[in-house]
Design a protein around this nucleic acid. Structure first.
Length: 268
DNA sequence: AATACTGTTCGCGA
DNA sequence: CTCGCGAACAGTAT
């Protein structure tokens, strides 16, 4: 599931393979997956790979960047040339061919994801529109955001304009660890709760990165292997099971139409 | 067979 | 500005 830990895992895996390589060819199988003019990236060298929130950013030697958003079902896979056999070819939307012979495949069942060719200026605009990356946010920043917001804490955590990188799974996990009810209004959090919330954000995300992210349906690493965080869920998808702290039942409810798992006894 | 559900976010109307 | 909802799409589970 491409939330921050999955995108971070992909970034780490890709970096050593694509940095200092040139893009020599791009094949587009689904037009809507590729935004921009491919002429602007052909024969350009990739000089850096970064991430903000859930967006992956490949910096090129010229005035362009490649921005990638995997949305629900996007995958990035690496293959040595002509070694595509193990892949279900049905959902390939784009293929990038690198000077090393490596093929970078953009796979996306639901077609929500995209790769965007953006000038440095356009990239900056897009990235500035996102809130501070969840791994980098400070206590002061979080405190100020909390005092300004009138929404429920889970919606707040998933609002990419406020903090970037947290999606449905990790919002549930973070709030369980912080013992905060997902429906609690953000402006009612005490300073102590905000401190615990911050610590929980970092703990959960770091732990998920350590397990290479969560593989439920479609997320997979560029080497075609799965992440393992789903084996360590604290609360997500544990409806009806015992709370790891108080042994009462975990429940599932809808919050803005998203499944929300929590313990109604110890998350107050 | 029909319906609910899925990791995301954008645009719309209130 | 914020909030909730439907849409973008395609599959699996019930």
């Amino acid at each position: 599931m491409p939330e921050l830990p999955e995108v971070e895992t992909i970034k780490k895996s890709l970096a050593r393979k694509i940095i200092n390589k040139k893009i020599i060819k791009v094949k587009i199988f689904n037009k809507k997956s590729f935004l921009g003019n491919k002429k602007n990236i052909i024969n350009e060298k990739i000089i850096g790979l970064e991430r903000k929130g859930k967006i992956l950013i490949a910096r090129l030697a010229n005035n362009y960047n490649l921005l990638i958003h995997l949305k629900m079902s996007g995958q990035i896979l690496c293959f040595k040339k002509n070694n595509l056999d193990i892949l279900n070819k049905k959902f390939i939307r784009l293929i990038f061919y690198l000077s090393s012979g490596l093929m970078i495949v953009f796979n996306d069942l639901r077609k929500f994801g995209w790769v965007k060719i953006a000038t440095k200026n356009e990239s900056k605009k897009i990235l500035d529109n996102l809130g501070r990356d969840a791994l980098l946010i400070t206590y002061e920043e979080l405190f100020n955001l909390c005092r300004k917001s009138k929404s429920k804490i889970k919606i707040f955590l998933m609002d990419q304009k406020k903090i970037s990188g947290i999606g449905n799974i990790y919002a549930c996990e973070i709030l369980f660890l912080a013992k905060i009810n997902p429906f609690k209004m953000v402006n009612q959090l005490t300073e102590k709760e905000i401190k615990i919330l911050l610590r929980s954000i970092k703990t959960i995300l770091v732990r998920a990165i350590r397990y290479n992210g969560t593989s439920m349906k479609s997320y997979i690493k560029p080497d075609n292997k799965k992440g393992d965080y789903q084996k360590h869920f604290l609360v997500y998808q544990r409806e009806g099971e015992k709370c790891l702290r108080c042994k009462k039942k975990i429940i599932r409810v809808k919050l803005n139409n998203r499944s929300t798992f929590y313990c109604p006894y110890c998350q107050v």
